[in-house]
Design a binder for these strands. Structure first.
Lengths: 236, 236
DNA sequence: GCGACGGTTCGGCCCGCGCCGAACGACCAC
DNA sequence: GTGGTCGTTCGGCGCGGGCCGAACCGTCGC
């Protein structure tokens, strides 16, 4: 797929709705309306503790942002959330939630194509292939990325052993460790397991070193087939 | 269930994250990071068109709000979104979405208990029962609430006919019309169908008029059973 | 060591906006 | 009509924050 990469124009709308909720007074009003009920401006003013005139301005702001709808009935104006979507959005902002994003490019320092695809980073694998491998292992729940540590699961041990990769725990460094890839700007796999993985792939001749640039790596046909068979990875 | 009703304290956190995204510059930065890649402050500064010092302050703000994470590598500091949850939240704010909220009380003008439960509003049913009926019909896709009009579906015609409610289209008013309930602050069902529904429920003696306050209505035992059988409504 | 460079902090400017009270307009009741 | 209520608009005040350039700190490379 073409990298979507969130066009900058989107940011305008984002800041618009965010700004509408940025003032604590407006946020409090929105929370009150989150109950799904409609209220007059005066009521909301009383409950958030501001003058009716102030509340009126805030409500106009929320209205402009498309978060509220108003229903006139005689001399009363009943404000409510615009629709269920904004209600769901508010509830979401009050908590937090799942689903990871997709990869994209952006400028980033230029790099020879072969190096960008795969290269060794000290003792482990980097480049697009390294990142893809890392992501796939996360998908397979072979490794779990925590807030400040990445761990190898029992299933992960099996998956890797299946590929001929075994690693004993060492005192000096962790089994698995995320390493920020400076060309991809995403994590690839380092640590003892990351190192053993690279050496194994080289031993099996799934990966071949470039003769002139030793850090650059090339994926052999058997390597391509092996990755597809063992991990279900389709390399680009 | 007890009415949750979004405590006001929640509004603080809401405004905090909203304020973090309220500045267009910060929103643009967040959109760039939405790609899932990590970037240095200088890069982001260049892309959003501000001085590095300004970008640094913005990034610190986003960091404080918990939306970003930073990874130091040598003299570089790579910023990325804190986790997949904030990425999903951002994507959500850039679009919109479903799921209706729940009912709650708040102050509202006081009202005799019986009137609050069910009463006639001109020629149709109002009060908690009227709102519950309206909501249930929406759930059953018997009526559909649009941005500026509510319509009766074919399935809705069948459901209502099953209860003995039939209504011919008139020139003067729509078949179904939402009417804002001033005790519940939510919509109940008016229009020709709403009127026919009330008269039918009274004819069948599912609803009984209070002798002293004629607008007040009481649900009979057969009415309670009938609503459960026909619409799956459990009245409180 | 020294310079170069990425990054943050500091001081200062100025626009924006949250807040109020007062004035104005619309609607209802009498 | 008059008065009362709900609501918005306007003028004005003061704080907050976005922006920059300059100074400062850490790391890398020589």
């Amino acid at each position: 797929m073409a990298t979507p990469g969130a066009h900058v124009g989107d940011a305008h709308r984002l800041s618009e709705v965010a700004a509408a909720l940025a003032a604590p007074t407006r946020a409090a009003m929105a929370c009150l309306l989150l109950a799904g009920t409609a209220h007059t401006g005066r009521e909301l003013a009383r409950h958030v503790g501001v003058a009716p005139s102030t509340a009126s301005e805030h409500l106009a702001h929320l209205l402009d942002a498309g978060l509220l709808a108003v229903e006139v009935q005689g001399r009363h104006r009943y404000y409510r959330l615009a629709d269920a979507e904004v209600a769901a959005l508010l509830e979401r902002m009050l908590t937090a939630l799942p689903e990871p994003p997709s990869v994209a490019e952006l400028p980033g320092p230029r790099l020879p194509a072969g190096m960008a695809f795969a290269r060794s980073c000290y003792d482990h694998l980097a480049g697009r292939l390294g990142v893809a491998l890392h992501d796939r292992l996360v998908e397979l729940d072979a490794i779990r990325v925590g807030p400040d540590a990445t761990t190898l699961t029992e299933g992960g041990v099996a998956v890797l052993a299946d590929m001929g990769v075994t690693a004993a725990r060492e005192r000096t460094r962790p089994l698995v460790r995320p390493c920020l890839d400076w060309s991809q700007r995403r994590h690839h796999l380092a640590g003892t397991v990351g190192a053993r993985l690279l050496t194994t792939l080289l031993e099996r001749r799934w990966l071949l070193r470039n003769t002139t640039r030793p850090r650059e790596l090339r994926l052999s046909r058997t390597g391509r087939d092996g990755l597809r068979a063992h991990l279900g990875i389709e390399v680009s």
